[in-house]
């Protein structure tokens, strides 16, 4: 036996290798990519053309109201799947193997998030392109569009960590996917598709104070600027600040919990 110094993998190298693994795996499962894009685009078209005519936004054209919110919502839907994938890795011994390698546990999970962010980005760009095609015109022009896209990626990053936590905590594919359903009340009982002001008071209390409503309002402001910010009770800058605070808090809590649970098990 030749005794050599123990091997050790630098953090960025580990991150790159993990990201590469998951990114390749995602690309080679086109059904996942297609489903993510199709789901998001179908939501857009249904609300744009089916429900949109019946929803009053108080001045703003419905497609202008809808598009920023829908892009935010589609980010939440695009990251649900990562929970099940993480749980599957934990059940099939892949996680055990990764934990036996000389890499930092955080690199394994951050790499996972980055690869998932790739899927979200593809979904985002495709949906945004269709949104523009069906009439979405950001009030502050191209910069507004870029602002919304960047904001949406932050949303995907934040909620990606939430579902990674779900996978690490449950270690069970079905349970992790089940937790994904929290996205439904979070997105539908928010200001994304309809102004929260149109809801009954008891529901409005939830809708007004939950993060998705704030994130959507911020995205709307980034797209259109103050004058066209419909049905918002505060100025746009307020929503961006509160939104960033929400995301920082959620991301930090979920990431810290996920990494420490991952190490412990």
């Amino acid at each position: 036996m030749t005794v050599s110094a123990p091997r050790r993998t630098a953090w960025p190298v580990a991150l790159l290798a993990v990201t590469r693994r998951h990114a390749l795996a995602t690309i080679r499962t086109p059904a996942v990519v297609i489903m993510s894009v199709v789901q998001s685009v179908v939501f857009l078209l249904i609300f744009r053309y089916v429900f949109g005519g019946a929803i009053g936004t108080g001045g703003l054209d419905y497609v202008q109201f809808l598009a920023p919110g829908l892009l935010v919502v589609s980010m939440l839907f695009s990251v649900i799947g990562v929970g099940g994938a993480v749980a599957e890795d934990m059940g099939t011994g892949v996680t055990d193997r990764l934990k036996s390698l000389p890499i930092a546990p955080s690199a394994a999970l951050v790499g996972r998030v980055l690869a998932q962010l790739g899927l979200s980005a593809v979904t985002l760009l495709a949906t945004a392109a269709i949104a523009v095609a069906v009439g979405f015109r950001p009030g502050v022009g191209f910069a507004g569009l870029l602002g919304v896209l960047g904001w949406c990626l932050l949303v995907a990053l934040t909620f990606g960590w939430v579902f990674i936590l779900a996978g690490v905590a449950t270690r069970d594919v079905q349970s992790a996917q089940g937790i994904g359903f929290v996205v439904l009340p979070l997105t539908f009982v928010s200001g994304a598709f309809v102004p929260a002001g149109s809801m009954p008071d008891w529901l409005r209390g939830f809708a007004d104070n939950q993060p998705v409503t704030v994130l959507v309002a911020a995205a709307r402001w980034l797209a259109h600027g103050d004058p066209r910010l419909a049905n918002a009770s505060h100025g746009g800058g307020y929503y961006v600040l509160v939104g960033l605070t929400w995301m920082a808090a959620i991301l930090l809590a979920a990431a810290v919990a996920a990494v420490s649970l991952y190490r412990r098990r």
Partner: peptide, 14 residues
């Protein structure tokens, strides 16, 4: 971790 290689019960490859 720097001196071992683990092959667990499940074939843990991608």
């Amino acid at each position: 971790r720097g001196v071992i290689g683990l092959a667990g019960q499940h074939a843990a490859v991608e």
